[in-house]
Design a protein around this nucleic acid. Sequence first.
RNA 1: GUGGCUGUAGCUCAGUUGGUUAGAGCGCUAGACUGUGACUCCAGAGGUCGCGGGUUCGAGUCCCGUCAGCCACCCCA
Length: 423
Amino acid sequence: MSTNITAPRGTQDLLPPESTRRQALEARIHVLAARFGYGEIRTPIFEATELFERGVGGTTDIVEKEMYTFTDKGERSLTLRPEFTAPVVRAALEHKLFAQGPQRLYYVGPFFRQERPQKGRFRQAHQFGVECFGYTGPEAEAEVISIAWELVRIHGISDAVLNVNSVGDAQCRPRYREALLAHFRPHAGALSEDSQRRLERNPLRILDSKDERDVPLIATAPTFEDVLCEGCREHFAAVRSLLDTLGIPYAVNPRIVRGLDYYTRTVFEITSSALGAQSTVCGGGRYDDLVASLGGPAVPGVGFGLGIERFEMMLEARGAFETPPRRGVQAIALGAQARLTLLPIVAELRRLERPAFIDFNDRKVLAHLKIADRNNARHAIIVGSDELAAGEFVLRDLATRDEERLPLGRAQDVAARLVERMR
RNA sequence: GUGGCUGUAGCUCAGUUGGUUAGAGCGCUAGACUGUGACUCCAGAGGUCGCGGGUUCGAGUCCCGUCAGCCACCCCA
């Protein structure tokens, strides 16, 4: 077994029937994004390493220890994308999209992080995300959140929770940092080891801690609302008001702090109890300074990323997948001569956009019907020596078990008649 | 990167204080039923017990290493 090559750690093969469900989910995503006026963007799976160092933030865990970075034969440092926002901004700049006004883009695809795998966490995972560029107003947040929430809603997921917060902007965030330092520093000795380290590096992260030694101090810590500047405070209030107007339920959670450096003002998360410790299925927010920091104009943006695998875990927890209805025709050929007769009919059915299945082995009718069941076929057409002699075939409805004999003839005619019958 | 748990048939799992030829259910293939799918009965195929090393007369079982999975931490989708 281990002498055989297996999929790399933290990656997975997607096989039927799971791949069929993935296709269906992606199809719903494409329809949903189009409904909001978003166009799909596809960027390379790897980028210049510098893009992520500058875009995501050099001190984030993602950049510091989770990237798949390699050097190619031209001595370029490249990195498998660990997230999508920086590549999307890079592409938009490269193609001068911002010269054409606001842009609404979405993507679906794989991303890569070298973390230790666990429930809901993989080294290659897939993400659906949107980026809305060019609007400073709170309507952009409302729109972007609406898309994510609509995806949750149309799937009947009931235990999803939307949390929102504001992390301020370049003016008030440093003030918040100072306020947190003033709060935690006198009690540094009582904090967990992790949080003591975070105190100097990124005190915001302490708010995220689950360590019970940190909990009491976190509970009394100042919140962003205490120090937000007037502009940020008004903006956050406007976002909440729009969510109320749109009927999207949410909770203000002063403890959500996203792990990427580029967020400004609004941040949000959708979480679910179905996901274990990795409870976030969707995370996003506003990033008003990112485009400029990557060398572009001062274009604001709002976006989110939604984990496809985690979303599927929520679907699984929600309840059984409905069994798909029977569809298509199983061609049952008893003998070589019957196969010759049925093959052109099968081909013609497929041309008429009807699923048609056929097994090429010599088996009994019984075995063929079991295969038809496995294929979830709606009908079977059976041809054996009796039928060939009579110039007929049997059409069997596998749901009702009704049968009738119909005349054979030109494949086109038989297929056309079948399509008519099966309507 | 750290810690805990677990690797036996395609799947889910038994396997006694170390003892002869490693088992069950489901699934698969075939038969009973000579041409009719959800039930029943019968048979068959399928495993170098994750991999490597060690202890032992003897290892699926004990020890070490390694790889992988799961769960948690860190972090995040």
